[in-house]
Design a protein around this nucleic acid. Sequence first.
DNA 1: TTGACTTGTAATTGATCAATCACTAATTAA
DNA 2: TTAATTAGTGATTGATCAATTACAAGTCAA
Lengths: 175, 175
Amino acid sequence: MARKAASVNRKEELVSAAVDVFAEIGYYRATTAKVAERAGISQPYVFRFFATKEDLLTEALSVSWQRMTEAFRAVIDRAGADTLEEELVEAYVGIMEKHRSEILLQMQAQTIGEPRIVETMRSGFREVRTMVEEAFGRAGIADPKRRTLLFLARGMLCNISMSLDLPELMEEENV
Amino acid sequence: MARKAASVNRKEELVSAAVDVFAEIGYYRATTAKVAERAGISQPYVFRFFATKEDLLTEALSVSWQRMTEAFRAVIDRAGADTLEEELVEAYVGIMEKHRSEILLQMQAQTIGEPRIVETMRSGFREVRTMVEEAFGRAGIADPKRRTLLFLARGMLCNISMSLDLPELMEEENV
DNA sequence: TTGACTTGTAATTGATCAATCACTAATTAA
DNA sequence: TTAATTAGTGATTGATCAATTACAAGTCAA
């Protein structure tokens, strides 16, 4: 089974390299050769793991959404009702700091019209929204639907603040 | 002077075609040939108006920001203090409906790392923010800084709602 | 009316890149 | 040991595209 495990690692390294390269120079400018180089493999070998470049993007996106939902899930399972929103914001900021590339990739994917990409983004968004809304409801927070949308909206503004380097959009005292 | 005026029109038509084509299939997938076809001119002729494809994108972005700031300026000059925010939201929704492509282009540009694109986006964002914040201040709205950021955040969520076709992110009753 | 200028295009070029092909080297199972 | 499978690469291909070149037809001023 050592073979299999090594192969899984290779694939994970490849996806992780793809996230970074796609985020740095953009999906369409990023070449499979650059991704391969970052992953330490040859360019043709990329296509042993993913049939097309778009398949690789889809997987990279899925991984980024998984990280986000898992982080939120952990907060929801642990946080008290009074600090829930605060801790969700903290978790998101944490992801933005530690996994900047994944957020930048998601931002790109917001405008890539390919049906499979759109679907991946839609389901990611829906899952986060549902999860947060239910948690807000259970925590007895007033108007959970509205609060969830505000939470998401602030997140989207944070993204832009990061990608365009406009820190004034994230002033803590105005949250 | 008829020559000059016709030339200005051609250029405007070209930029407008670029906005649409870039928005539809993405800046990097959009070819100068497709933009030219949409504008009803030949592909090489594009380069008589703009030295590079990126120059064309920069101009297209500038135009889209101008439309937005002009629309907001008109509202601010006209609206009463009590309906200011409401009317600004209306104006934004109007742009999203009538000039969907321009919003989609701005969303793309949020993650295009090219320095001149970043700078165009930054100055557009700053101008809108400053304009709205000052108007909120003059209108005696409480906490104008915070309200402006909320206004922008909601706008960014609207964008995503449109581009990913997730109408539940824009439920009127939760605004 | 001729020469300079403007408007416009067809054809080409040089680069780039996703994907395929043809192959070698290592690993494993019998 | 050997046959089959797996891991991995170099070389190539076919397509695409931004940008250039070289040219033609119209316009206008002297």
